[in-house]
Design a protein around this nucleic acid. Structure first.
Lengths: 238, 238
DNA sequence: CATTATTTGTGCGTATGTATG
DNA sequence: CCATACATACGCACAAATAAT
């Protein structure tokens, strides 16, 4: 064996750090190619099994992206790991506890309520028009009897557009990540019928109108009013 | 039924979902033991390689915890994956961009500024005393010439105590996760000397005094004043 | 369009290190 | 100290997917 190094660290962790170091040292960017598995084996002095496990760990963190039959590349560095982790936590505790979802809604509301001043100040005409278009789409969807997947997609778009003017990528990605977690976990708690859809569409409409009027207090009140029924459904289910 | 074909899904992803399903179906809790690797192989119809890679992925998400020579157990479901992912993102972009850290500070301030009303209202005597103790400790550390690791640890404790009264585990864990990311990435940008330490200690002291006085506006101003020099250092480094 | 080279995905056997009793 | 059970690591062989020739 090459060097009886008394590694308190596991070899796989060493390989993980080695690959991260390779990306940092070579100033690679998302999408850039990484060495092939055999090359990494030689460069890091580990077997292919260890390298593969390390690559899979980094893949789970979206630090690297693996394409079968093509190669390994620097990942998008998204928050997909947070989504998967939080979703599982929610599913595991949803049987006897809604605290996870309640905490999550608190943070989502905090993004939109606590940043209300900046959002209202930064929203321009184009962004307001885009929000109006989503609201119109939601209203049309809500008026039809069935609750379609287009409706939930429009809701996701709405909240993404709402925090977009902050130009804070972390808030934007966290907001969407929490939305995704809620969308997966909440259906295990309660349904979402036409009346809830109409309610949500109206709440979104009020938020946009308040923003267009530049009325900060009205905007904050509209955001609070939007999340109130969400909390009610959580409390009723828990 | 394992008879159904999983043509599009990779086998490893199937195993990942299988292990997650096993935990959910059996209502396991953090710390509960999982089947051994050979048992998982037979149960999921996969080889050791695939099972091991799947376990490592779940380990990276803190959904399972592996103890060498002992066994595999349900993990603590922490946000360690978020810390690792965001830290790497920060290190990768720190060379030509401080936006990642700036966004992160915005969110940390949002937690304490946007939730100020609830924090001030919920803080009790014991929590205020604990905050005072940390502030005293920081001041003592700052007065000594060297900047010790105890100082940064006290800062971490302070911000954890500050959001603790919210009883929102997600905010508490996100707040600490962002603190950890900043603590790793920021040293690559700027130093942290005795004058900054004294400044931070004074800012923390003002926050606690405002909270003890129940003065919400003063508390918010103190939080803003605390993060202002942090932003200045970021702007100067970027 | 087919072939082929490249690269990752999967399976299996074996040896070693580690924790527990 | 020994025995057992388990995870760690290695190396090879073959399958599957992709891209270029």
């Amino acid at each position: 064996m090459p060097g009886t190094r008394q590694t308190r660290q596991s070899l796989r962790q060493t390989v993980v750090e080695g690959i991260k170091g390779y990306i940092l040292d070579n100033r690679l960017r998302p999408g850039d190619p990484l060495p092939t598995e055999p090359e990494l084996c030689q460069a890091l002095g580990a077997s292919r099994s260890s390298v593969r496990e390390a690559v899979k760990v980094l893949n789970a963190l979206d630090i690297v992206e693996v394409r079968h039959g093509h190669g390994t590349f620097v990942g998008r560095l998204s928050l997909s790991a947070l989504v998967e982790s939080l979703t599982f936590r929610g599913l595991l505790s949803v049987e006897d506890d809604v605290q996870v979802l309640s905490d999550l809604i608190d943070v989502r509301e905090l993004f939109e309520h606590g940043m209300a001043d900046r959002i209202v100040a930064a929203l321009d005409e184009r962004q307001l028009d885009a929000l109006d278009a989503v609201v119109s789409d939601m209203k049309a969807q809500a008026d039809s009897d069935s609750v379609s997947t287009a409706l939930v997609g429009a809701d996701r778009d709405f909240h993404a557009l709402l925090v977009a003017p902050l130009h804070n990528d972390l808030i934007a990605q966290l907001s969407l990540a929490f939305w995704d977690v809620y969308a997966v976990v909440a259906p295990h708690l309660h349904g979402f019928g036409p009346e809830e859809a109409a309610e949500a569409a109206a709440a979104h409409k009020e938020i946009v109108e308040a923003a267009r009027a530049g009325d900060l207090d009205r905007f904050r009140a509209a955001v609070t009013a939007h999340y109130a029924p969400v909390r009610s459904r959580l409390a009723a289910a828990g």
